[in-house]
Simulated scan of single mutants.
Amino acid sequence: MGGLFRAPKPAIVAPPPAPAPAAETPTPIQAQQAAETESRARSRRGLEGTIATSGRGVLAPLPAAPRKSLLGE
């Protein structure tokens, strides 16, 4: 029976590729400029995302509705 069934051949595993060269670290000036640019973009998005309120404002009381004096009115 050994001739009917054969064990599968082992798969050949290729060695992992060489690591990519490390990227250059930015200079402190470039890092500061990138941070300022990101901060400006974030604040611009924040202004667009604010909720516009009416002239009454958020904390002003609602106008009083006329009260009913009798049932059924």
Score class of each variant (00 low, 15 high):
residue 43 S to T: 04
residue 19 P to S: 07
residue 13 V to G: 04
residue 48 E to S: 15
residue 48 E to H: 14
residue 63 P to T: 01
residue 43 S to D: 01
residue 3 G to Y: 13
residue 23 A to N: 02
residue 21 P to D: 04
residue 2 G to F: 13
residue 55 G to Q: 06
residue 56 R to E: 08
residue 64 A to Y: 07
residue 33 Q to E: 12
residue 51 I to E: 04
residue 17 P to H: 13
residue 37 T to S: 06
residue 23 A to F: 06
residue 42 R to A: 11
residue 46 G to P: 02
residue 39 S to K: 15
residue 66 P to D: 08
residue 44 R to Q: 06
residue 52 A to I: 12
residue 58 V to T: 05
residue 69 S to A: 10
residue 70 L to H: 06
residue 25 T to N: 10
residue 14 A to F: 01
residue 21 P to H: 08
residue 57 G to A: 14
residue 11 A to R: 09
residue 41 A to L: 09
residue 63 P to G: 10
residue 16 P to W: 07
residue 12 I to R: 06
residue 18 A to W: 08
residue 4 L to E: 02
residue 62 L to D: 03
residue 47 L to T: 09
residue 62 L to V: 08
residue 7 A to M: 14
residue 62 L to P: 02
residue 49 G to P: 00
residue 45 R to L: 10
residue 10 P to T: 07
residue 11 A to M: 10
residue 73 E to D: 06
residue 69 S to C: 14
residue 15 P to S: 13
residue 55 G to H: 09
residue 70 L to K: 11
residue 60 A to T: 00
residue 49 G to E: 05
residue 55 G to K: 05
residue 51 I to A: 13
residue 10 P to G: 12
residue 44 R to Y: 09
residue 7 A to N: 14
residue 60 A to L: 11
residue 46 G to E: 13
residue 38 E to R: 14
residue 2 G to L: 12
residue 63 P to S: 07
residue 29 I to P: 00
residue 34 A to R: 13
residue 17 P to Y: 08
residue 69 S to R: 15
residue 50 T to A: 09
residue 25 T to L: 15
residue 4 L to M: 13
residue 39 S to H: 11
residue 61 P to D: 00
residue 58 V to I: 08
residue 54 S to F: 01
residue 45 R to E: 01
residue 30 Q to I: 04
residue 63 P to Q: 07
residue 65 A to N: 11
residue 45 R to P: 00
residue 53 T to W: 15
residue 20 A to G: 01
residue 33 Q to I: 11
residue 4 L to P: 01
residue 46 G to H: 11
residue 22 A to S: 10
residue 42 R to D: 02
residue 59 L to K: 11
residue 7 A to G: 11
residue 2 G to C: 11
residue 20 A to C: 04
residue 51 I to D: 04
residue 22 A to W: 09
residue 55 G to E: 04
residue 64 A to I: 07
residue 42 R to W: 07
residue 49 G to L: 03
residue 29 I to C: 05
residue 19 P to M: 15
residue 36 E to T: 03
residue 30 Q to D: 06
residue 29 I to Q: 09
residue 21 P to E: 03
residue 73 E to C: 03
residue 60 A to V: 00
residue 6 R to C: 09
residue 28 P to C: 00
residue 56 R to C: 07
residue 29 I to S: 07
residue 50 T to L: 15
residue 8 P to K: 10
residue 4 L to S: 10
residue 6 R to A: 13
residue 43 S to E: 08
